[in-house]
Write a protein that binds this DNA or RNA. Structure first.
Lengths: 220, 220
DNA sequence: CCGCTAACTTACCGTTGATAAGTTATCTGC
DNA sequence: GCAGATAACTTATCAACGGTAAGTTAGCGG
């Protein structure tokens, strides 16, 4: 009906169909997020796009943060999938770690907004705190958990590498943290300062990966 | 006068004394910033503490961002000073790089709010873009330039190290970027997720520094 | 047809950064 | 000492934000 709404779905939902509205909200939020970034993705704009009033969103999400995190989890699923594929198809421990790093960085550069929200969330102190608070929370449905799952995969990959005979220069969990921090440093820098005249973007990724591999693997 | 204002300075300034008001504003902002973090540091709260109306702040700063950046530059001065001291007292190229990394990380952990604002500024797209846009801007008074100055020091240190005979595995500027990104990865992770059960915080700093040194220096 | 309640709206709250327009006080030139 | 000029500052207000309270509409089961 209205001329400038890509996802307005007209009238009220029938009984029991509320969950479809929830998905419409996520879809609209995602569109806005991709088109105009985080700042433009306000409650009111999402509601407008869905074709519903702003408070209606609060029937499906407790607050904006949970909405955004649910959105990110959806996107992070792609990264989790691609990591799972690496784990199932690549057997060499070194190669696994390297491929993880590549996939991680590629994902970050392909989904900068989601990356920012999950890994650089300066706005979401609440859930970031919870996210780190007690890591072994086995609830994969908890919103915002995507980043933690990814990190846990790396811990597993490196622990398994060590178990299969790879000698490490540090404890396995420290190696995982170092590896993640290094790649996170590259990702966040390239994402936050895209217009900075970086000497060589590709080399920064592959070089950091080389450095980390050499640094954490004994005799690497 | 009022019971809970640490810096209220009473009446109006005389002609030509506006600059002292400007410093009072920065001081109040800094106090709030340190006491209650970035979120609590609103225009109105700063104005209250100074003992002046909110719009008065706009006589001295074009917007909140410039205020915050001026504030950060003040704090970053300490880091710049300590780097200058390292440069003037440490002659060994390897040791210089290492000491830079240590000083950088220490500063980040000691001033997390300023660090966030300058290096993780998800709120300040404007100036971050400018900051990276044309690096060789020789205006050290430009607000928000602190982080760029620090980075430029590292570039110099590594370029000088190479000039003095140290063999690098990558171009000097790439080495500087890799070094900064790695340490930035550690700093930002520890700052943004302080409650995460990191395996060993000290080891993450020293270990990353070891890894980077070994990685960028030929035969390191 | 009645009542329950899911789905949704209108009206509003307090807060934010920021602007426009008016006021007061001090300094300068005469 | 008095009259502008203008630095310094206030009041009133804006649009937008996230979020809540309370009322309304619509569909389903009895």
């Amino acid at each position: 009906m209205s001329a400038f709404s890509t996802a307005a779905t007209g009238g009220r939902k029938k009984r029991g169909e509320g969950h479809t509205r929830r998905e419409e909200i996520l879809q609209a939020a995602k569109e806005l997020f991709l088109e105009q970034g985080y700042e433009a993705t306000t409650i009111r704009r999402i509601a407008d796009r869905v074709g519903v009033s702003a408070p209606a969103l609060y029937l499906y999400f407790p607050d904006k943060e949970q909405m955004m995190l649910a959105l990110c989890d959806q996107t992070f699923g792609y990264l989790i999938d691609s990591i799972a594929e690496i784990e199932s198809t690549v057997s060499d421990p070194r190669e696994r770690i390297r491929r993880f790093g590549e996939a991680y960085l590629k994902f970050g550069l392909a989904h900068p907004d989601e990356y920012k929200l999950v890994f650089l969330g300066s706005n979401i102190p609440e859930s970031v705190r919870k996210l780190g608070h007690k890591m072994p929370t086995n609830d994969p449905t908890r919103p915002g958990i995507g980043g933690a799952i990814v990190f846990q995969r790396l811990v597993s990959i490196i622990a398994e590498a060590e178990a299969s005979g790879l000698a490490l220069n540090y404890p396995a969990d420290t190696c995982a943290e170092l590896c993640w921090m290094a790649m996170h440093g590259v990702a966040s820098a390239l994402i936050l300062k895209p217009e900075f005249p970086w000497s060589n973007r590709d080399l920064l990724g592959t070089g950091m990966l080389d450095i980390v591999m050499k640094g954490i693997i004994r005799g690497g």
